[in-house]
Computed example of a mutant assay.
Amino acid sequence: MNKLVGRLFHARVRRRWRRVADAAEQTDLTALRQQRNEARKLSTELDRLIHVADGRLALPKLGSSSFPRPHGTDWAWRPQLWCGPLPRPGLSSAPSESTLGEEVQVFHDCNASEVTLRQLRNKRVQDLAPFGLRLDVFKFDGSFLSLAINLPSDAAVGLGRDHILRAETILEVETQLEIYARLNIQNGPNTEQIIRKLPEQDQTIRVDFDISDTRINEKRIEKIWLDLIFDAPDMNQVILRDLTFARHRRAAL
């Protein structure tokens, strides 16, 4: 009985909003403004429901934190973009400093951006991450293009110079290009940086950043982020099928 009542109620709600939408061109502006505000509030809750439902129903399981980790790992993380569907899945003609999700930001100095970012669904058997990131670059008239991935605050908790921070990605490129990974650790007024060139022939790429190569003040770490820097990226497509981070202590010598 309750299910029947629920179906009837939702059918009535849908009919009401269908009538409102059909009449929107002729609705009085005061009433239309109120209807728009109601619709926005409803849309927010519906988007939240869809986001959670997509996450639970999609395969592989969204939010998955399953990936290989070094022995002795004391912290590990996969960014949300690779875990679950984003409410806004893409950016077209992305301006510099625009963000996709909460953790990924694009930087460039193009006069006219022809850079597109889009979250895509991984469906291959070998993929552990539910989602990937596709970067399309058409005409590129700038001097640099990078993606910044902001690590969560708990990445800095307990981080010391005896740690190694590993970044691992599954990378596909349309045309070979040079890609660099730069780890940035902001501590007080200083930012320590470690840069590594990614191998061009491998799809599964593992990069270790030895924190002993820095002069960080372990008590003043404020922010950690990774820059992926693309050299001469014009007319190319890059797909990051996965991106994970893991932290472990360096073996004692």
Rank of each mutant, 00 (worst) to 15 (best):
I211W: 00
V125S: 12
S65R: 06
L4K: 09
T204I: 01
I149L: 11
V173L: 14
I194M: 09
V115Q: 03
G160D: 02
D141F: 02
V137Y: 08
R182L: 08
G188I: 09
N37G: 14
H10I: 14
L135T: 15
W77D: 03
F9I: 12
A246G: 03
L228Q: 01
F107K: 08
I211L: 03
I170W: 07
S43V: 10
A11S: 14
S113K: 05
L117C: 04
G142E: 07
V238E: 02
L62V: 06
W82D: 00
E114N: 11
Q176C: 10
N122G: 10
E38L: 15
P70H: 03
Q105N: 03
L117V: 06
R33L: 15
G63R: 06
T169S: 15
K61I: 05
V20D: 08
F230R: 05
H10V: 13
D231P: 00
R40H: 14
I239H: 04
A148G: 05
R33G: 12
E222L: 04
E174Y: 11
R12D: 13
D47S: 10
K219S: 07
F131E: 07
R48C: 08
D127L: 10
I195F: 06
R69I: 00
E25M: 08
R78L: 02
L159W: 00
S153V: 14
D54A: 14
A11D: 08
L226D: 06
V157M: 09
V137I: 13
A39P: 04
L177A: 06
D231Y: 06
H108G: 07
F131A: 06
D136A: 10
I149E: 04
V106K: 03
T44W: 15
H248E: 00
E200V: 05
L100S: 14
T99V: 13
L57C: 09
E174L: 13
N187I: 00
T191R: 13
L135P: 13
L159T: 00
G55P: 09
R56Y: 12
G142P: 11
L177Y: 04
A53D: 15
V207G: 01
I164K: 00
V13I: 15
Y180D: 08
E103T: 14
P70Q: 07
D127K: 05
R12I: 14
R247L: 04
T214H: 05
Q237V: 12
P95Q: 07
L243E: 02
Q80W: 00
P199C: 04
S92P: 12
L4P: 01
M1K: 14
F107V: 06
L177I: 11
R15Y: 12
M1S: 15
Q26I: 11
S98L: 08
L165T: 01
S96V: 07
L4R: 09
L198Q: 05
L32I: 09
L57P: 02
E103Q: 15
I221L: 03
T44D: 15
L243H: 04
Q186M: 05
A76W: 01
L120I: 12
L240R: 04
D210L: 08
Q176L: 10
T30H: 10
L240V: 09
I205F: 01
L46W: 13
V173S: 12
S66V: 08
H10C: 13
A251M: 07
D202L: 04
Q201P: 00
